[in-house]
Design a protein around this nucleic acid. Structure first.
Lengths: 333, 333
DNA sequence: TTGTACGCGTTATCAG
DNA sequence: CTGATAACGCGTACAA
């Protein structure tokens, strides 16, 4: 593999000149530039990014750490972040954190030195881990659970959006509304969404029946389907379901179909995330549409601010995204 | 940011000893090791991966380049490759190629020097690009289109699986079977799947009606839905649809619902990829289940072989994966 | 336009 | 056997 020195020698110039050509620096005579370019193609030269990164201390790449790469939501999130970063001239490398011990690996792991900064979509991280985030590397959390840590933080409008989603079900005539959510340990996505759900019930003067709060281990389709069947077969009385993710909702729709419950006639269902699939389900799924683009933009901007040092790296920043409701067939369209 | 020198100084040893401690090399007395570890925590030392990579010429990470990160199939693919690589002690960084000029960027781009090797899931790449793959870097193509290039290649069982899928529709009584596929330019996924489809029709003595070959720009849900509606509204006579991806099939199911066509009674639908969503659709989607795990394993193994130089880096290797049919409601399963 | 030092960890070589 | 010293990987900032 040819080095910049080889090219320099072949072109009869100094390594520095080759570097100048590569980086489109001015002050290189056209003739010289030609010679260098010719030598580069002849030797099939490629810059050694490791060397460049080492010297520059910058990589032009940010990392995006997500719990899973194979869920609709995180796929959407990744695509949105990539688009936002690209508009700002940054590349994105995605890494999956799930199979490793925990998300903190992605931070503490020296690996983050390969990135100018890291956007971390937290899932299994708790408040207690917040302090461990006190790294000198630029980090922005995209998601929930972490509050007040020394990092940037772009959060979903969990409470308000969940309240709105639940209110929508109420407006459509539901009186016994279940929520399917994750197990609640501390302040996290599920607990905030439950709070919004409860608030909406309270606003409407509906009783909060604990039996209607259905917690599952994973927020996946399978868990949604199983739980929906259990709810129906177990004789639970409900006429609406608010699912804290669309994946859960997809499963719930399927589970309800399995037990012969008609949606939206007998049960109305609304999800959260508005993943692309929602529009094409049968019935199509009503969902909370968080402002994915806006949140991704904000996350990238926050991160750039930290990278550029315009923000003290350990300062806390908090941003909450907007949302809208997308009403489709599953709530009577 | 502390360097290894700083740690050495703080611990009163040489940088070399620190390096030995970091890398668990023997020949370090426990007492010395302790001193070094203490200094490391005290200074909050993190190895500079850029420097290490530069020196070692290895990163322990492979790249995975996919056209999109937000489709069910590529998400699944990524998760599978990550799992396979992890079993072999390799990390995976995912990059999206779609928004850039073309997949070749991922190769020619110097960036690949950050990875020990690259698994490239080709989509827009044609035979003509094959030669440009003649890089000295370890590359394995996971997908289709490229044949005989100087790279490893793990292909889907396109022909056989498509034939089997179509045959399945025939066995279920379909006589007018449409195929929804991508636009065909050269030897690619769609053309191979069309060939398998045609072969199955031929085997059964069914005529090949060109009107039943429905080509769409993108293999996405929206395109599937639109096309299904057009087919039905346009008066096309069909009682079965083979979609070359599950995403297309999801859209087709939705499009058929829009026009009131009952699946599987009036029209049977089968997809390709067996993405996780398929199981939970209503109706659940029959699909070709390629041996994702096996293919990912093979791809990673091929790549490792090239990285370890046990294979000449420019040698061509070809592997075709296995498959099975998963029969669900959409074909009367 | 070029020489030189530098970024930082590791490999090779050498001394205790 | 433990540890130190020096050179190296390769591209770039800065002074010349």
């Amino acid at each position: 593999m040819a080095t910049i020195q080889d090219v320099a020698k072949a072109a009869g110039v100094s390594p520095m000149t080759v570097s100048n050509v590569i980086n489109d620096h001015p002050n290189v005579r056209p003739a010289t530039r030609e010679k260098v370019l010719e030598a580069m193609t002849r030797l099939d030269y490629r810059v050694n990014v490791a060397a460049r990164n080492l010297r520059k201390g910058r990589t032009g790449t940010i990392g995006l750490a997500v719990p899973e790469v194979d869920s609709a939501y995180y796929g959407l999130l990744a695509a949105t972040v990539i688009a936002a970063a690209e508009r700002r001239g940054l590349r994105v490398s995605i890494e999956q954190t799930a199979s490793r011990d925990n998300e903190l690996d992605a931070l503490s792991l020296s690996r983050n030195r390969l990135y100018d900064g890291l956007i971390l979509s937290a899932a299994g991280m708790g408040q207690s881990d917040a302090e461990r985030l006190r790294v000198d590397h630029p980090v922005v959390i995209l998601g929930d659970r972490i509050f007040g840590g020394p990092v940037g933080h772009v959060a979903m409008p969990n409470f308000d959006a969940s309240r709105a989603a639940t209110r929508h079900l109420i407006e459509r005539g539901c009186r016994r509304i279940a929520i399917v959510c994750g197990t609640v340990e501390e302040v996290d996505t599920s607990s905030l969404r439950i709070a919004g759900y409860r608030k909406a019930l309270e606003d409407a003067g509906l009783p909060a029946d604990r039996a209607l709060v259905q917690q599952v281990d994973r927020l996946g389709m399978r868990e949604g389907a199983e739980r929906a069947r259990e709810m129906a077969n177990g004789g639970l009385d409900f006429d609406g379901v608010f699912c804290v993710t669309d994946s859960l909702a997809m499963g719930v729709l399927r589970g309800l179909a399995d037990v012969g419950a008609r949606v939206p006639d007998q049960v109305k269902v609304i999800g959260f995330d508005n993943v692309p699939e929602s529009e094409f389900l049968i019935p199509s799924l009503s969902s909370v549409d968080p402002d994915h683009d806006g949140m991704a933009e904000r996350a990238v901007d926050l991160l750039i601010g930290r990278i550029e040092q315009t923000e003290p790296p350990t300062r806390h920043q908090d941003v909450v995204g907007g949302f809208s409701l997308v009403i489709r067939e599953s709530t009577g369209g």
